[in-house]
């Protein structure tokens, strides 16, 4: 085991969470709707952080868990110690993306997020056709939901032309000023 205080100290600084407060009751994992899909359920994540083991920390950055967390907040709301696990997940996600350690099987999820952000970066609002197109080019899931789109269009749920806001320059500015 390679103990590394630094990763945990940084995490604690950014999130304000003292990982030692978790006493491993498992209530977060019990209530987590995605725990079954995760490689490490939330209480395991907490314990892995508590060990200060750098190898385990790297495993977390490379985990499916952080991308499967939907930030539904059930864990923190029921946590007897009010530990902000969603905040930890946010931190680990940003770090994972920043250090290019995104889990291979979670790439679709990240691709979707990126396509989503690309869409609003240029128009200010979400352009659903653009989002799907962007997602498909990123993932090559070219045939997914091909039958759905025409139905949506028929029901007036899929505008063909993007809505451009006037402040697109402002939006682009926001994107560039928040780029890490």
């Amino acid at each position: 085991m390679i103990a590394n205080q630094k990763s945990i100290l940084e995490l604690q600084q950014h999130t304000g969470v003292n990982v030692n407060r978790c006493y491993q009751c498992g209530k977060c994992s019990a209530g987590c709707q995605l725990a079954d899909e995760m490689d490490f359920p939330p209480s395991m994540v907490m314990h892995m952080l508590q060990t200060r083991d750098e190898e385990l920390f790297q495993q977390l950055l490379n985990s499916k868990t952080i991308w499967l967390c939907v930030s539904c907040q059930n864990c923190i709301e029921r946590c007897p110690m009010s530990i902000d696990i969603p905040q930890i997940m946010d931190y680990l996600r940003e770090k994972s993306a920043g250090e290019h350690k995104i889990n291979h099987q979670s790439r679709d999820i990240v691709a979707f997020h990126r396509a989503f952000l690309d869409s609003i970066k240029y128009t200010g609002r979400l352009y659903e056709i653009g989002l799907i197109a962007g997602y498909k080019t990123r993932t090559f899931h070219l045939t997914q939901d091909v039958k759905l789109a025409p139905k949506m269009y028929a029901k007036g749920k899929l505008p063909l032309v993007p809505e451009m806001i006037k402040g697109t320059r402002n939006i682009k500015g926001i994107f560039s000023r928040t780029k890490h």
């Binding site: 491993q24 498992g26 209530k27 977060c28 994992s29 019990a30 209530g31 359920p41 209480s43």
Partner: peptide, 20 residues
Amino acid sequence: GRVARIYEKGGKYIVKGADT
């Protein structure tokens, strides 16, 4: 492990817990 929630269904109580 601790129990996250309980709900009733068909006269049974569904207890959702975890085995740490």
